[in-house]
């Protein structure tokens, strides 16, 4: 009989909640308190109920109460999100984009110059590219060790993250950072904190592509 009462209250509230926009904060608080009361009662009934079927009905009703709680929560969240969005600082999109273009472009120019020099010395193009990447990785690792690469990153954003130097930075920086936790669990385990996902999904995509070509061949 108590259960019926709660059920009725829940139904009634469902109608009220349609007009939640017209409620003031005190009224919303009251609704929240009633929801809490119903919820506690239902948990209590559930703990006492032995019949499987009764338990199920109680649980369904409890889920309905949770839904209503979520609805109130969502309403308050959306209302606040509007306020937050209004006062959110503007992202300097143009400045960031120019910085990314400049930093990314410059890193690639350095790479190209190194590549040109190696090719001029008679190394075939494919090997020359591999050597260039190695040199770039080395430069980035050194700059990371000297504490300079994070400053470049603060300015360049994606411009310093996207080139292979960013990948090297993502491996060297956790290695440095976790040195104090030791060589096995520190450097050893943490070195892939950020680059690990690259290796995982790199393996995945490479095998998918390889198998696809193997099958259609």
């Amino acid at each position: 009989m108590d259960l019926k009462e709660i059920n009725m209250r829940v139904q009634e509230r469902q109608r009220d909640l349609l007009q939640i926009k017209n409620f003031n904060d005190a009224e919303i608080q009251l609704i929240n308190e009633e929801l809490q009361k119903d919820y506690q009662k239902l948990v209590l009934f559930e703990s006492k109920a032995n019949d499987k079927e009764v338990r199920l009905t109680i649980k369904n009703l409890r889920n309905k109460v949770i839904e209503q709680q979520d609805l109130v929560k969502k309403y308050l969240q959306i209302r606040y999100a509007r306020l937050v969005n209004k006062s959110a600082p503007k992202i300097p999109v143009l400045k960031n984009a120019l910085a990314a273009f400049f930093v990314g472009g410059t890193i690639c120019v350095i790479g190209q110059i190194i590549l040109n020099v190696i090719v001029l010395n008679g190394v075939p193009n494919k090997e020359a590219t591999a050597i260039t990447l190695m040199v770039m990785v080395f430069i980035s690792a050194l700059l990371t060790g000297l504490g300079i690469y994070d400053e470049i990153g603060r300015f360049g954003g994606a411009g310093s993250m996207v080139p292979i130097t960013g990948f090297a930075n993502s491996i060297v920086s956790p290695a440095l950072e976790y040195k104090r936790e030791g060589y096995v669990y520190g450097i050893g385990a943490k070195v892939f904190t950020i680059a690990g996902p690259v290796l995982l999904y790199g393996s995945l995509i490479s095998v998918i592509i390889g198998l696809t070509f193997y099958i259609i061949k």
Binding site: R154, F155, G157, I194
Partner: peptide, 17 residues
Amino acid sequence: ERQLRFPTELGVQRTMT
């Protein structure tokens, strides 16, 4: 930083917020 966000030497841009 290292507990809640990223390694300190990682080149990340900090958001405006």
